[in-house]
Design a protein around this nucleic acid. Structure first.
Ligand SMILES: [Mn+2]
Ligand SMILES: [Mn+2]
Ligand SMILES: [Mn+2]
Ligand SMILES: [Mn+2]
Lengths: 150, 150
DNA sequence: ACTCAACTGTAGCTATTGCTACATTTACGG
DNA sequence: CCGTAAATGTAGCAATAGCTACAGTTGAGT
């Protein structure tokens, strides 16, 4: 059966899981800078409570994560003050927004209903490599146009 | 620009992040039972060191996670003994192997090179909902066949 | 000015997943 | 048997991300 052929071609380097762990380590930073950018777009100002609502977590979790991202030079804030993006944060946010949009559009293009596309894209986006992303872009730009017009 | 239209349609329920967090919570269990199943297939016996190699982590991490999964009735083992799958574990492993294969085949079908397909599938698989998976299966079964034969 | 509600911060807890260093057990060769 | 190397377990550390409960700050309205 096909089980062995599809699994790690033996000389597969440092195991795909190392990449997955790296992806997870950056996932929070990516989602938060993206959320900050979105909130700044929509409301002009980003507060802890806006992020808490957006991410669906308590304000305590947000405060701690914002502090870490500030120490990583992605966000900038002061006690009781709004949260802004640093230059690095803006750059990362722009990349993430674009990638997120691509993944979501791609899911819609293959026929996933909008609600599930929203949910799945939020997780999938962080595990999409450069080549995969490029394939998705190509697909969205030129949908193979079958199935719908036979 | 298109930024606002693609972001959370306002009345979007409990935020997609809740689902992502749920997915992450089950991710380890899924990858481990899948790995145990693979190792049992290939070597007939699954030991801590096999899992450690497979996952790219230390044997200590494996031991602790195996203990947790045993308490969740997915794995079964005893000190210094091989690791087996419970009935529930076998069922979950079968689902995960199938889903993993689908995601990987799908990535290959849209043109992702095998190495990156392996790495990305390992992360993406856990964030693919039922509808998305069904769309992927359909796509793999009937590739829209353009691009290559114009 | 003052008050108060909302917002933000802090203390302290849990769970998970990583690690190194060290202890113990198993299994195999001699 | 017995000794040793490999495998496994245990102790104890760190980082991340959740939470509740409580304390402090801000800002707006009176
Ligand atoms: Mn996300
Ligand atoms: Mn996102
Ligand atoms: Mn996986
Ligand atoms: Mn997998």
């Amino acid at each position: 059966m096909a089980a062995s052929a599809q699994r790690r071609p033996s000389a597969s380097g440092p195991s795909p899981f190392a990449k997955v762990r790296r992806d997870h380590a950056t996932e929070t930073a990516e989602d938060y800078v993206e959320a900050v950018a979105d909130i700044l777009h929509e409301r002009g100002e980003c507060r802890v409570r806006d992020l808490a609502r957006n991410m669906g977590v308590s304000h305590v979790t947000v405060t701690r994560i914002v502090a870490r991202l500030q120490s990583e030079d992605l966000l900038d804030t002061a006690p009781y003050r709004p949260i802004r993006l640093t230059a690095r944060g803006e750059k990362l946010a722009a990349e993430c927004r674009r990638r997120h949009a691509t993944v979501r559009s791609f899911l819609l293009a293959i026929g996933v209903p909008p609600d599930e596309a929203d949910r799945d894209a939020e997780g999938i986006e962080h595990h999409v490599g450069a080549a995969t992303l490029e394939c998705m872009r190509r697909f969205v730009d030129r949908p193979p146009a079958s199935e719908t017009s036979p």
